[in-house]
Design a protein around this nucleic acid. Sequence first.
DNA 1: GGAATAGTGTCTATGAGACACTATCGT
DNA 2: ACGATAGTGTCTCATAGACACTATTCC
Lengths: 216, 216
Amino acid sequence: MTAGPYRDRSGKTLADYPRPSVAVDTAVLTLDERNGLVVLQVHRENERGWGLPGTFLHQGERLADAVKRSLKFKANVDGLAPRQLHVFDEPGRDNRGWVLSVAHVDVVRQERLAQRLPESTRLMPVDSPGRLSFDHADIIARALGYLRERYTRSPDPDHLLDDEFTIRELRLAHEQIAGTPLQRDWFRRTMEPQLIPTGVLSSRGRGRPAELFRRA
Amino acid sequence: MTAGPYRDRSGKTLADYPRPSVAVDTAVLTLDERNGLVVLQVHRENERGWGLPGTFLHQGERLADAVKRSLKFKANVDGLAPRQLHVFDEPGRDNRGWVLSVAHVDVVRQERLAQRLPESTRLMPVDSPGRLSFDHADIIARALGYLRERYTRSPDPDHLLDDEFTIRELRLAHEQIAGTPLQRDWFRRTMEPQLIPTGVLSSRGRGRPAELFRRA
DNA sequence: GGAATAGTGTCTATGAGACACTATCGT
DNA sequence: ACGATAGTGTCTCATAGACACTATTCC
């Protein structure tokens, strides 16, 4: 198949070049009843305290697969759609050696995190994620930007809510993500064309019952 | 300083993990009188035809520095501000082995590319960049998206024009980047608040002389 | 004068914010 | 009746597109 190893113009093969370790780190975001938008953290055993879940890339593995593997292993989460955010490459960022980290983001319903280990994982509000390395705070900020952009126009694209919901429930979820209150009437007018009415009324709250909708 | 190599919970050191080669590839965009928005390509010696300039990461090197080094070496360009676009990680994307590539984008005045080697480099229109690997076409598309976003609101942020220019010259440059004609009156009204009038008139064209402006 | 371009006035359509009103529940 | 929420009408303001008009140059 191949006529010996590839050599470049200086006669070096691929193996002659130094190679960094490559890791993935992921900000898994979800909505919490009490704390709003929260980020999954894991206790890193031989290291300092809490951090975002991550792993080293295995031989020939896709980055997205490494993300899925690390989350499956650490929080028993599947059905993920990790998305790249940024490569962190400061030479001194990891005291174990030369490690590049490809930061990712993913968004899941909190139920999907139910199987996680309660002692070695925690969910922290994105506003006050605790003491983390500079990298990880930056990853959370980028993840938040991504999520806010994603939720500006489309009704709950990541299915944080059930299949059916009232417009109020939808707006409260979007407000948690935006971090600011959203206008009630404008929000309805923007989202309603992207929703399918079910004709069924919900009386989960106090006032007039609201119609349940599905995503279009 | 360090108490032996780091070991994780399975007793492995960093060196026990497989490491991919890491490369950077860069879409350098510039404006050409005749061909509009063009992308710098280099002839890759032992490989197939033309591609975007790139290099392998050196030991402990920052990604941005590798980009600068590759462009300095291949096109004698400096004063760059490379920006990460995406990591390409398909296992079979490079027939030399397991190579991750971190795609970057940069935008420079064509004068900055004047010193490049005429036989081993070329400038191709972004619309018809020639035969490139799938990766590189994707990089160009992402670079274009980045540049268009950058040029929607701000007058020539990458200084593709001189310090002083007429609003017509500015608009023609923005049209090359947008790929569509921009409305003359609306463009002026959007950009003029971000410009400083010089009071000097230019009679470079045919019609009524236009005022020269600077960026605010 | 005519072509070409600069610079400006104004009308319209759209999206987003603001406010207010009616409607329908639980208590 | 009252508080609370749902759903809707309408006014305003900013932005963007469209069109048209005057102004000033070169030929």
